[in-house]
Structure formats: C-alpha cells, structure tokens
Design a protein around this nucleic acid. Structure first.
Lengths: 342, 342
DNA sequence: CCTCTCAACTAATGCGCATTAGTTTCAGGG
DNA sequence: CCCTGAAACTAATGCGCATTAGTTGAGAGG
C-alpha cells in the first residue's frame, strides 16, 4: 500500500488515521495516499490497529442467560435497544458474549467470564453472574457496569431503576384517592427488584400514615393457587380496598390478582383498586391498562452505556445518581375506593 | 504472565492456544500455566491473537438499520434468537456493528462496513447494504452471509425463506377448498421478499389451473386508502372469493384487507376467505389467526450461522439449499367459498 | 566416555499498525 | 558559504500473540 502510493507506511497511517498529532502534511501527498487506498480497496486492519492502540471500540454485553431469550416476555429487549443506541452514539460496537447461553447456566465456566476482557469494557445483566469472577474483573480494574442494583459487590458500578420511589409513589396516589388499607402481593423471590418494591411500598404506607407491618404484605410462592376469590372477599371484608402486585418475569402475582378478582365477580376500579409495580406482561397488553409505573428500560440501557464509557475513560468520579426514575402510569385499574359498606 | 508461571511465552501460548501443533508438553507444565492464568485472570489479547492468526472467534452481525429496532413489530428479534443460539453452539461470540445505526442510514459511511473485518466473518441483514462495499468484502474473500435472498451480488452466500413455495402452497390449498378466483394484494415495494411471494402466488394459480395474469395482483402504494369496502364488493361481484395479502414490516396490505372487509360488513371465512403470506403484526396477535404460513425466522438465523461457519472454514462446497421452508398455518380466516350467488 | 536421539522446552521473528525519534531538503540570516 | 530552523517526510520500535527455528538435558547405544 505504502509502496503503491510512493510514500512511507507512516504517512499512510497518518493520512488514514486522521492525523491527530497535527503533523503537517502536504495536501498533494494526502490526496495521493487517499487515491491509492481507494483504488486498492485498502483498509487499515482493525486488529492491528487495536493491538497498537490498546483499545478496540468494543463494548461487551454479558448475561447469564441467553441475551435473546426465547421467552418473548423477557425484559432484555428494551434494555438492548437503549444499549445499542447509546453505544452507537458513543462510537462503540457491541460484543454479545454467548458463553453463558451455550450450554445452560450450570455449565458456564469461569473462563467464559474472562473472555469479556476482549472488549474495552462490559455490561453485565442478571443477578446470577458469579460474584467471584466478577469481583476479579473489577479488582483488576476492568471497566464493568452491572444493569440492576448490585450493592454487595463493592466497587462495581451499576445502574438500576428506582423501584423504591416509584412504588412509594403508587401507594401515595392510592392513599390520596382515599384508600386506607392496601395490600402488596409479591412472589417468593429475594431479588433486589422485589425487595426494593416492598420497601417502597412500606415507605409509601408509612408516609401516608397508613397501617403497614407484615400484614400488609402477602408473600407467596404460588400466587395462582394461593390468591383466591375467597381470599379477596375476606380481605375486602377486612376493609382492604386496594391491591398492589409486584412485577416479575412471569407476572405471576398480577395474573393471580386479576384472576381472583374476576373469579370473585368483582371489577376494578369499581369494586376495588389494583396496581402493578411495573409493566404488564406482553400477553396481557390487550387487557385494561394497569395503574402503576413503567420501568424506563431503554433509558436504563443508555444510562448504563454512558456510565461504562465514563468508567472506561478512567474517571473516578462516581456518577451521583445510578438510579433511573420510573414514570407513573395512570392506567384504568385504580380509582377511589367504593363507598364504605358498599 | 509467562514469568509468573515460570515458563516461556511460547509455552503459555501453546497451552492456552490448544496446542494444535501436537507439540508434546508435560502435564505438570500445562497445569502450572493454567493455574497461573487462572489466578491472574489472564486472557490472551484477542487483538494480538487475531493479528497473529487472522481469526478471533468473533462473528459479526451488521444491519443497515439498528439491530434492535424501536419498532417492536420488527422481525429481527426472532432471527437474532437463532443467530445467538447457533453462534454459541459453534463457539462464536457475536459482534453487533452499530456503525449504521449511529446517525441514520444516510450518514453511514462506507468505512463503517469495513469495520466488520474485525470479526472472522459477518452476517448481513437488510437489503440496503451498499452493494459496492459488500462486493469488495466478498471479492477480498471475506466470509459474508446475507440473511434474505440476494442474488444480484454474485459470490455472496445467503439464506432465505422459501416464499415462493410457501405462497404457492397457500394458493393450492385455497384452490382445493374450492376457490376459483383469487386476488393478491401487495404493497409497492420490490424487495425480493415481495417478488418471491408474488411469483409463488402466480405459480400456485397456474398449477391449480386458475386465471392468473396482471388482474390477479393488486399493487398499491397506499393499501389503507385504496383497498376499500366498495372495491371488495366489486371484486366479489366479479366472482372473486379469496384474497391473499403479502406480509411486510407494517402489515399494511393485510390491515387494509381486514379493514375493508369489515367495513363492507363481511366476515371471513363465511363470506370470503383471507390469507396472509407470512405472520401477522404483533398488535394483531389478539385477533383471529390468519390462514397463511409462518416464516421460521429463528431457524433462518441458525441456518445462516451454520452457513457462515462453513464459509469461514474455507470450504467451497456450496450448501445445496439456502432456502428454508415455511410452515403452513391453517388459521381461521379461510375456508370453502360461499355457495355461488350467495 | 562420547555421540545420537528424543523430549521438552525457549529464542527469535513477524503480523499491520500507531507512534516516537530521527533525516533530508530548502529558505533565509549572518 | 556556513548555520539555523522549519517543513515534510521516513526509519525504527513495540503492541501481544502464534509460529518456526533452535537449544538444552537426559537417557540410549556403542
């Protein structure tokens, strides 16, 4: 290539590399190189380039499960939309590490995680990422950002949705609408996403001066079987007028609630109010819009990318707010409680 | 790293590189290297590796539009599911090239395409990929596979759905049900996917001995405005008893057909039969299941990966069949034609 | 006891580029 | 006519690895 243009390899590199050093070049020379490159179809080898510069404009995405789950209800997609958009904007290409999905979570080897070092930095999704390996990456100074709250790993940067505030806000609105007794139905899972919602729920009750405590939270491993029409009636008899369900992958709690309410011959918001702490599963999209909040997954993804970029740039400035706010969704399943004794 | 394990860099390379040369190594040495690598979290630099070997276990995915479109109706997702699964199975990680989505299709620079050279091979989606650049890649011997029929670029491997056969099959079944006059409604687009469907439709008519010709195909740029209730009535008066719509990103033709039929106060399959050459848009999933066929997108993605792997391995053996069959979907919108004069 | 042959490594080289030290050329100044 | 200095390049080096030539050490054979 250099010989073809009649100049040195250095000059070619300079011309094609953008000449950040501000070295003076004759316009004629520049043209000659450009012309030669064009006619030869020459393109600087990206591999060699990244070898020489120690960076390759690749941003990793690692998830314990398949990045593209077969289960369409999965919530990764909107995240990835944001990740891709922002990564593109920042000039990075994405590397999807498939190591974990190859042969099931159990078979994931520790080395699989090391492969992410291929990228300049990496985003991690899912709380099942092995702590040990992740810790080593972080300790080694490898730029990593976790999508979703992940406090137990000190030094690991993360971004998450502010479930606490959003949940509290839903409760506040229910209280303002006149509800005095509210129950949270949650599944038997201790993910941060669940814990945060419960915490926000309880904080919301307290802020509104409503009764909280264990009685306000129903935790069940099998919502469909345990949340029955009878139980709903009993709760109503106790004076409970609003029910809040947490959002999960399956939407189990919400489904159970809808089912039981329907089976009891009741409707929302006429007889009682229902709220969902998150977005409804895709297959329920056609039904009534649940009152609750939307997790800004796309924004979450974009925020994560920005955070990762800042980590990669070596800045130690911890971004002040890793929490992204969720927007309240009015929906149609909640309203004022029915007249007392109704 | 080498120093840490007390061996030479060569030995490390041998151990970690799989030792394809069959050089004899002491098990103890091997272990020592492995252990050192583990404790240091050392991973061979992929850039250097690919510089030296010209391969890096990375498979590219390049699409002209964003790989994760905001428009949920988009059909990339199922493709990617298949691509990810198969890539993982074959031991490749995926690189999503975002160059095209960064600033809109128009701003895509030719060099963006060259960046794919970073990967060992690349999958291309979307027919808007600049031919010139793609051609150069192919001519340079770069392993490329196009998802979707793409004949005009000689030497470019591709996999696509067999729309011709599937469409002909739908027509055959309609004919067998008793329909004698069938019309295809298609949009004004010359994508191979559209052309193939029309061809299959016409072949199907011919095979069934039914009247074909230009009159059997309605091509419209604005289906919603041009396919009206009156037009449906006029067609029925002419003796047409079945309507077939092509599937597109927007599902425009199908929507228009459904709308017009409804506006005319008709229902399928009672008054007439409707068929969709593909899958219905997501937002119509709740409605009646259209008779037609399903494009096996996931399988298509997996097939593309397998093809790419074979191309990368340097085998010249052209896989005999780049076409993946679409499965007929009975659906509920088609049946026998109504009694003559009904 | 010395050469020969394996076994088991190690030294050296190059991949294609970015980058940092030069090197050459030419115009003025003295 | 020599010296200085800027302009416009070029030579050399190293990134981290794979690979190809060695090199060393330990028996085996004579």
């Amino acid at each position: 290539m250099a010989r073809a243009a009649g100049v040195s390899q250095t000059t070619v590199s300079l011309v094609l590399g953008g000449n950040k050093q501000g070295i003076v070049l004759q316009e004629a020379t520049r043209e000659r190189v450009l012309e030669a490159a064009r006619s030869l179809g020459y393109v600087p080898d990206p591999a060699a380039r990244s070898l020489a510069t120690a960076r390759n404009s690749l941003m990793g995405v690692f998830s314990f499960t398949a990045t593209f789950p077969t289960d369409v209800q999965h919530s990764y997609y909107p995240l990835l939309v944001g990740v891709e958009q922002e990564a593109a904007a920042q000039g990075y290409d994405l590397v999807l590490f498939t190591g974990s999905s190859a042969s099931g979570p159990e078979a994931t080897t520790p080395e699989a995680l090391d492969r992410v070092r291929l990228a300049d930095g990496c985003l991690f999704l899912g709380r099942h990422i092995p702590s040990r390996e992740l810790r080593r990456l972080v300790d080694d100074g490898y730029p990593a950002v976790h999508l979703g709250r992940r406090d137990e790993l000190e030094g690991l940067a993360w971004v998450g949705a502010d479930y606490v505030s959003a949940s509290a806000d839903v409760v506040r609105r229910l209280a303002e609408a006149g509800h005095r007794r509210i129950v949270l139905v949650r599944e038997d899972d201790d993910a941060p996403a669940s814990t945060d919602r419960e915490r926000g729920f309880l904080e919301g009750l307290e802020a509104a001066g409503l009764p909280g405590g264990p009685a306000a939270v129903v935790r069940t491993a099998e919502p469909a079987a345990q949340i029955t029409a009878e139980r709903i009636r009993a709760w109503r008899a106790e004076g409970i007028t609003a029910f809040v369900a947490e959002e999960t992958d399956t939407g189990g709690a919400w489904r159970a609630l809808l089912g039981a309410v329907g089976a009891a011959g009741l409707t929302a918001p006429e007889h009682l109010s229902l709220a969902l702490l998150g977005s409804p599963p895709a297959d329920l999209a056609a039904g009534p819009e649940p009152t609750g909040f939307d997790v800004p997954r796309t924004e979450l993804g974009a925020t994560a990318v920005r955070l990762l970029v800042s980590v990669m740039s070596g800045e130690d400035l911890k971004p002040p707010e890793p929490l992204v706010s969720c927007a309240f969704r009015a929906g149609t399943t909640a309203g004022p409680p029915p007249p007392a004794g109704g």
